[in-house]
Simulated assay, not measured.
Amino acid sequence: MKLTPIDKTRYRRHLNAVFIGCALVLAAASLAVAQLLIALFPSPDDSHFHWNLLGVVLSALAIGWGLDKFRHHPFLAEVVYVWELKQRLNKISRKLRSIEAAARRGDKNAMLALQFSYAGSRQLWQLDDNTLVMDELAVKQAELDRLAEQHGLVLDPEDYHEQMLAPF
């Protein structure tokens, strides 16, 4: 995955539209499905919890299917990009201790993974206005830069690919 610039305003607008749309569809479809099931399969007791729950589950599955089907639509481009970036960063953070240890030993792939993680995190935090930890990230980036210079490496986050995480 390559890091690409994202228009923050467009991303926020589209993300909000997707969230609101999903919430409205979930509410309406859940009620409609539950009412249909209750009408088709009446129950002598007053509790229709299982039909309501099934309505929510079926509606959530339909929303998931719809989002997957339209994931390549231009409207969802920024939202899908950020979602995939978060998945990649999560894979790195699950192995962070091993990666950091390998980077201290001079492993180029570990340093590239950290470089990608720092650049991706910086982009995400700027998109979400989460600037509280940017100073901490700058310190880690400076430490990584010193380590790369010490080992004579030039780190470009574009050189990172997910297969580099396999040894960790």
Rank of each mutant, 00 (worst) to 15 (best):
L155Y: 08
E149T: 11
E136A: 15
Y11R: 02
K91H: 11
I99T: 03
W51N: 11
D45M: 12
W83A: 14
Q115P: 00
R12Q: 11
P74Y: 08
D145G: 00
L127R: 05
L15D: 10
W125Q: 15
V33A: 10
L153I: 06
R94D: 09
Q35D: 13
L15M: 11
A148K: 12
N109I: 01
D128Q: 10
V154A: 12
E100L: 03
I38N: 06
Y118D: 02
L132R: 13
D156Q: 09
F19Q: 08
L3S: 05
V80C: 03
A103T: 04
L61V: 15
A60R: 02
P157W: 09
L165W: 02
V133T: 15
L96D: 00
L67K: 04
S59G: 11
A101M: 02
L36A: 15
P44L: 09
M111Q: 14
E158W: 00
E136N: 13
F168I: 06
H73E: 09
A28K: 06
L54S: 15
Y118V: 00
S59E: 05
H151T: 03
A103C: 01
R146T: 12
N90V: 01
L26I: 01
L155A: 12
L153A: 07
W83S: 13
R97Y: 08
I6N: 04
G106I: 03
V82E: 10
I63F: 12
A27E: 01
R97T: 12
E158R: 14
H73K: 07
E149G: 15
L67C: 13
A34T: 06
R71W: 04
A32C: 06
L137S: 07
L37A: 11
L165Y: 09
R12K: 12
A23K: 00
Y118F: 15
A142P: 01
G106R: 04
A32F: 13
A77V: 01
L114K: 08
F49E: 10
A119T: 10
L127A: 06
A39N: 07
R105F: 01
S59T: 05
G66T: 15
H151S: 04
L53P: 07
A28E: 06
R97E: 11
L127P: 09
R71A: 10
A101H: 01
L155C: 11
V82A: 06
Y11K: 02
F116T: 07
F19M: 13
D129V: 05
R88Q: 14
A28T: 10
A142V: 02
H73T: 08
R104P: 00
D156H: 13
A142H: 12
S93D: 13
L76I: 05
L37G: 05
V133P: 00
H73A: 14
Q150R: 15
D159L: 14
I63Q: 11
I20Y: 11
A28D: 04
N52P: 01
D7S: 06
G66Y: 07
M134D: 14
A29R: 05
E84V: 07
L40D: 02
V57C: 10
A110C: 03
V57D: 08
V139E: 12
V139D: 10
G55H: 09
